[in-house]
Simulated assay, not measured.
Amino acid sequence: MLFVVLCEDKPGALDVRMENRPKHVDFLKGLGATLKLAGPFLGVDDKPVGSMLVLEAESADAAAEIAAGDPYALAGLFESVQVRRWNWTINNPDA
């Protein structure tokens, strides 16, 4: 099953994001095929203000557990995190 993890950064936390970015990128690369896609949301100034991940996991709880291990989450970057089941219907390379 696929899950989208939607993360909103705390206001004024760009420094936290940038300090933890190398560990975050390594974490994502280490997820292998579990991670389908990922990237930041951008504010009007084109600076990151949040993140979106699409994970393959057995359940929403399993996806949330993976997301909780992200160095960004561990550093307290996020104001909120949502995990939602997702059905990739258009341009899905596995369909």
Rank of each mutant, 00 (worst) to 15 (best):
M1E: 13
L37S: 15
L53D: 02
K10Q: 15
V5Y: 00
N91I: 09
L6C: 10
L31N: 06
V16G: 06
F3C: 07
P11A: 08
S80H: 11
G76P: 07
E79R: 13
G69L: 08
L74G: 15
S51R: 01
L31D: 06
V25P: 04
D70Y: 06
G69P: 08
M18A: 06
K47N: 06
K36Q: 12
D45A: 09
P71A: 11
I90G: 07
M1N: 14
G76M: 12
L28N: 08
A95Q: 10
N20V: 08
L77G: 00
P71D: 10
D9S: 02
W88K: 04
L42T: 09
A68H: 13
N92P: 04
D94E: 13
L55Y: 03
A63H: 03
F78M: 01
L6S: 13
E65M: 13
D15Y: 00
A13I: 00
F3T: 05
E56F: 09
K23G: 04
D61S: 15
N87S: 14
V44C: 08
L14M: 07
A67H: 02
D26C: 07
W86N: 01
P71S: 11
L2C: 07
K47D: 01
A67M: 08
R21Y: 04
F78I: 03
A60L: 10
D70P: 05
P11V: 01
I90A: 12
D61H: 12
D94W: 14
E65H: 13
E8Q: 15
D9L: 00
L28M: 09
L77I: 07
P71V: 09
D46T: 14
L6E: 10
F27W: 10
C7F: 01
A95G: 15
V83F: 05
A57K: 07
G12T: 02
F27E: 06
V81N: 01
G30L: 09
G50L: 03
M18I: 04
V49W: 02
N87W: 11
G32D: 12
G32C: 14
F3S: 02
S80W: 01
G69N: 13
L74E: 15
L2G: 05
G39L: 08
R17M: 01
L53N: 00
D26G: 09
G76V: 10
P11K: 07
L77C: 04
D94H: 15
P11G: 05
A38Q: 05
S80A: 14
E58G: 15
L55Q: 01
V83W: 02
A57F: 09
S80N: 14
N20F: 08
E58H: 12
E58T: 15
D46G: 13
V5Q: 00
A33P: 11
E19G: 07
L2E: 06
W86T: 02
E56T: 10
A68F: 12
I90T: 11
G69Y: 07
S59H: 14
V5L: 06
